[in-house]
């Protein structure tokens, strides 16, 4: 009797650990860096992490969360980031206003999204391959448009106000990018977890065949999913150019692997391994804090990458390993 009670307690402890392993790891990491570096927990540093490391990655990752919820993937998010950034900067350089620039940038991202949607829903190409193809085409397009990858810089003379309006202003003391992130987070949360569209998306992700048979217009919803993802990546592209005041070709790809990692780290929160807005945000925060913390502790850039890889590996190992033991 006592043995089985002991066993069940062990199992429930395991289940608890499996469920909250990411949160526990997150807390442990924060405590570690708080002890190891006096500057880590200062408001200035946390603010810096939030504005510079979290916001842009989080917006891309939230877009990807929608796609991954639908059972797909978008390898071309970097292209959406780059195209929006490119068109935005080119329009401003040509003397157009910020509104036109933002509209043009989002339009460019929209085209990428529509292209993905057509390839996936009309031509029945798997999302992985369709977006891989678009990624290649997007890279070529940028190289051709910038004679091989020359960055476009905007001198502060013109259009700097437009940049500042996006990247450097604040509303009630909260920087605009952070407000943007909050708006996007709430919107994606409602869309994915509280709306009919979200329920369709989840259904397509869980059981595509059943979703089709139960009358969900899969092509239409799937198109929407990919267009939304590309648009959100486009928002990040505009934020990126507004922050660095330039367009650097092919720089968006840096978001891809981190965004995939963050979204899947987030899936460990749910028993069914479903992506969620909260989970993705947690994944993004985890990556951003580790990057920042390792920097403060004095690791150079190269070791940071090793550290992040090892850490993500450990979090996944604990989460997946414990869950497997529970089943």
């Amino acid at each position: 009797m006592s043995v089985s009670a002991n066993d069940s307690r062990k199992v429930s402890l395991r289940a608890f650990l499996a469920k909250y392993s990411v949160l526990i790891a997150f807390a442990a990491i924060v405590i570690f860096f708080a002890v190891a570096s006096p500057t880590f927990l200062t408001p200035a540093n946390l603010f810096n992490v939030l504005v510079n490391n979290v916001v842009m990655l989080a917006i891309v990752a939230l877009g990807l969360t929608i796609v991954i919820s639908s059972g797909g993937i978008d390898l071309s998010v970097g292209v959406s980031v780059d195209m929006a950034s490119m068109v935005f900067v080119m329009l401003l350089a040509a003397g157009y206003s910020g509104v036109v620039g933002v509209g043009g940038g989002l339009g460019a991202a929209l085209i990428v999204g529509i292209l993905n949607a057509i390839l996936i829903t009309r031509l029945n190409i798997s999302p992985f391959l369709a977006t891989l193809g678009v990624l290649f085409i997007g890279q070529s397009t940028q190289q051709l448009a910038t004679s091989g990858g020359q960055p476009i810089y905007l001198t502060s003379g013109y259009a700097s106000d437009q940049f500042n309006a996006i990247a450097r202003t604040a509303l009630f003391g909260v920087p605009t990018p952070v407000i943007l992130l909050i708006v996007v987070t709430v919107a994606v949360h409602i869309l994915l977890h509280r709306s009919v569209f979200g329920r369709y998306v989840q259904a397509m992700g869980a059981q595509p065949g059943v979703a089709w048979y139960s009358g969900i217009r899969v092509p239409r919803e799937l198109s929407m999913v990919h267009v939304l993802c590309a648009l959100l990546a486009g928002v990040t592209g505009i934020l990126l150019s507004a922050t660095v005041k330039s367009y650097v070709p092919l720089s968006g790809n840096a978001f891809l692997l981190d965004a995939i990692g963050a979204t899947f780290i987030g899936t460990t929160l749910s028993r069914e391994r479903k992506p969620s807005v909260i989970g993705t945000l947690l994944g993004v925060l985890l990556l951003a804090i580790v990057k920042n913390g390792l920097l403060l502790v004095g690791w150079n850039f190269y070791w940071q990458q090793v550290g992040i890889g090892v850490l993500v590996f450990l979090v996944l190992a604990v989460s997946f390993g414990l869950r497997r033991a529970t089943h």
């Binding site: 995939i260 990692g261 070791w303 990458q305 090793v306 890889g309 090892v310 993500v312 590996f313």
Partner: peptide, 14 residues
């Protein structure tokens, strides 16, 4: 997809 992504970071960093 995830496991090899983490290992990618480790290998590239090393």
């Amino acid at each position: 997809l995830l496991a090899t992504l983490a290992v990618l970071n480790v290998a590239a960093g090393m």
